[in-house]
Design a binder for these strands. Structure first.
Lengths: 205, 205
DNA sequence: CGGCCCTTTGACGGACGTCAAATAGCGTGG
DNA sequence: CCACGCTATTTGACGTCCGTCAAAGGGCCG
């Protein structure tokens, strides 16, 4: 899935900005190069559910590979730079590599299923621990973190929106995590101090 | 995606039986012809989360299109008959029709996202109402229900496993729905008596 | 310095879970 | 057809996790 030849352009988006809406018509495929974003849904009552965080290297809504209608809102968290490709052009090249596409597909589906399991069957503590660990793991896999410390641009309301909780409860649990010496947060950076304990809470052996 | 020529065979599975496990190796693609099944995950503590119900016409785990490892357990609810196709053979034919594949893909992803939203942000009442309405809708689309009445082979523990609730709480809410004249359940069949009210509860205008 | 957003903290309430016991169905075998 | 046993469902009392509300600090930027 090398697409260097068909780069449409590269663009930079300020933080807290909407990249695309569910009603938009988008004829390009976007990949995040730097920064964090989130794809999410907002309910009539104003509640928000973040479906996934987009980190550098992620595709913005793989549904856009197949049709121009985004399935949900995508919003930047930090400033984001990304590359856009013409959709039909991109798919002409990608079709040959169905394998790479299927990896994308399966990865997204597994992520969505994991989220459902967390929200359906785990406590607030478990959900937050799992969120932290999964973000760390994804960043480490991409060489963007060393294993115990990572950039952490999320506000507590992002954590709340991702875990199905309220910002108030997230605050209580995060300060509790800190008091128990599990993590350290300062200056938009998060350090996992007691990895084993955090994994135990997350239900990972 | 017509595959009549490559049917491997047709098989019948009794109710309450496991079709495939996450550790299995399956080199065929299965489609449900009759009956209901569920794909689900079980946690170490015994909790279960149903990720989707499989109705006649559904593919059993579309991940199996691309690799032989199921991502979760699939279990029959009623007796199920299904058709199996050789995976590589099936994909050879399907690759030409990327459009049909993408419809499958997007449908599954949307289903998974809807589930996460329900579990993260909706009350027990809303979740159950939405489950009933979505099952009805899917059956009607396939001509398997007339719009107000459907076969309903689910036990309350299935509803609980799908909505992230306990069987006890599901029982209380279902009897409440019945007392309020919203639905009628008898003899493994469910009738929506007050569709408008049920939709209102579900948050669908 | 003032305003805004974010975080923290505490008191309180409600939705849902847990536990337990009673009842109802349902299939099996006598 | 009845007896039995198992599994589902119902119901009530009670507990707890998490939400709501409100107020009081931080931190950052003009």
């Amino acid at each position: 899935m090398r697409g260097d030849a068909i780069v449409q352009n590269e663009l930079t988006i300020p933080r807290r900005r909407i990249i695309c809406r569910a009603q938009d018509l988008i004829d390009s495929v976007l990949f995040v190069c730097e920064g964090w974003a989130a794809s999410l849904v907002t309910l009539p009552n104003g509640d928000r559910q973040i479906l996934s965080f987009l980190l550098p290297g992620d595709i913005v809504s793989s549904a856009l590979l197949f049709r121009p209608n985004p399935s949900c809102l995508v919003e930047t968290i930090t400033e984001v730079t990304c590359r856009s490709f013409d959709r039909t052009e991109f798919m002409r090249k990608a079709t040959a590599e169905l394998g790479a596409l299927s990896v994308l597909w399966i990865g997204e589906k597994e992520g969505a299923d994991r989220l459902a399991i967390d929200l359906g069957r785990r406590t607030a503590e478990e959900r937050i621990a799992r969120l932290i660990l999964s973000l760390m793991e994804r960043l480490v896999m991409r060489g963007l973190a060393q294993g115990t410390t990572m950039d952490f641009p999320l506000r507590q309301h992002h954590v709340a929106d991702a875990t199905g909780l309220t910002p108030v409860h997230v605050s209580k649990l995060l300060t509790d995590f800190r008091r128990r010496g599990l993590i350290r947060i300062s200056d938009r950076s998060l350090e996992i101090v007691d990895d084993a304990a955090l994994r135990r809470i997350a239900g990972l052996r």
